[in-house]
Amino acid sequence: MLIPHPLLGLRDAEEFTYLGDASLLDRPDPHAPDAAQQFYEYQHLRDNPAGIHRELWFHEQGDRSWLIVTRNTLTHEILGAELARDAKGAKA
């Protein structure tokens, strides 16, 4: 697989380490009244879509960027990749 790194262009997937669903960016508020429940869901509950999936990849053998890669889990087609810190920044 090839991953289109936003800074470095197409890079082989072997250079990356996979983590999982990009929902891990949304760490709950630890001070919320239902923080325990929210953290339980954050930690353990994931969607497992057959189709479009936003997921986290770490360019471990490269520039050490965390990327959010949008991938079709059925075809492995990669629809895009962005720096996680940009995505997180845009959300904030």
């Binding site: 891990l24 960016l25 760490r27 986290l56 965390w66 996680a84 810190r85 997180k88 920044g89």
Partner: peptide, 18 residues
């Protein structure tokens, strides 16, 4: 050593980029 470094970069880039 490797996994903790990866985790700290995750925290830095994905949780608290500010």
């Amino acid at each position: 050593a490797g996994t903790i470094y990866r985790h700290l970069e995750f925290c830095r880039q994905c949780l608290w980029p500010e």
